[in-house]
Structures are given as structure tokens and as C-alpha cells.
Design a binder for these strands. Structure first.
Length: 99
DNA sequence: AGACTGACATACC
DNA sequence: CGGTATGCCAGTC
């Protein structure tokens, strides 16, 4: 059962437009806790709303994916396939640029 | 209740 | 520039 905090996180992530990517900091800011990026990651890690919340659109500020439950690399491909057709969205994996 | 963990960020060496 | 170290927040053991 997700807590209020997590609910806010999911809500914020769901707001991310398709084909766009946001940083954890961005999400944290949306929920009103810019420094709770870790907690955000924790919430997304459980991600009970897997298909509802596009967690793969949430990346690090550096542009790196960071890590995902199903594998960062796979998530990047999925991300590229889903929306980030152009390289406009900084799509990196562990500091490595995909596009 | 206390300690550890985790998908981060920033600072310092 | 790259790796190491510390701080942060919420959740879970």
C-alpha cells in the first residue's frame, strides 16, 4: 500500500509528457521535496503502478538512466522506442550516450 | 526504535 | 576529469 509520498511521486511521474524525460530532481520538486530524490527512487523502485507510471522516463540529472528494475539498458531502448525518437531527450546509460 | 538500504546530488580530493 | 565521500528522504528489515 503506497504512502502519500509515493502517491505524489507517481502522480508527478505520470504527468511527464510522452517522449520526454525528467530528472529525479524534477519529480522531487513536483512533490515538494527537492531533496527527496532518493525517496523518489525508492518509490519508483517498487513502482506498484508499473504500466501506469512511466518510470523509465525518469532519469538522473546527468542524463544517465541510473538504474531500473528491469535493467537500465533495456529501459533506454524502451524509452527510445516509446517517445524519445530524437536525441533531444538526453538519453544516456551510465554516462554513456545511447543516441 | 534503531540501522540499513536505494533508481540521487553535490562537494572534495 | 574521475573516483571517493557526505548529505538527504522515505521505506523496509
Amino acid at each position: 500500500m503506497p504512502t502519500k509520498f509515493e502517491e505524489k511521486v507517481y502522480k508527478a511521474v505520470k504527468k511527464i509528457p510522452k517522449g520526454e524525460v525528467r530528472s529525479y530532481e524534477w519529480v522531487a520538486k513536483q512533490i515538494g521535496r527537492p531533496k527527496s530524490v532518493r525517496a523518489v527512487g525508492n518509490a519508483l523502485n517498487k513502482n506498484p503502478y508499473a504500466p501506469i507510471v512511466p518510470c523509465h522516463r525518469v532519469i538522473r540529472k546527468d542524463g544517465s538512466i541510473g538504474g531500473f528494475a528491469s535493467g537500465a539498458g533495456k529501459k533506454v531502448e524502451l524509452l527510445k522506442r516509446e517517445g524519445a525518437e530524437h536525441c533531444s531527450a538526453r538519453t544516456y546509460v551510465n554516462k554513456e550516450k545511447i543516441c
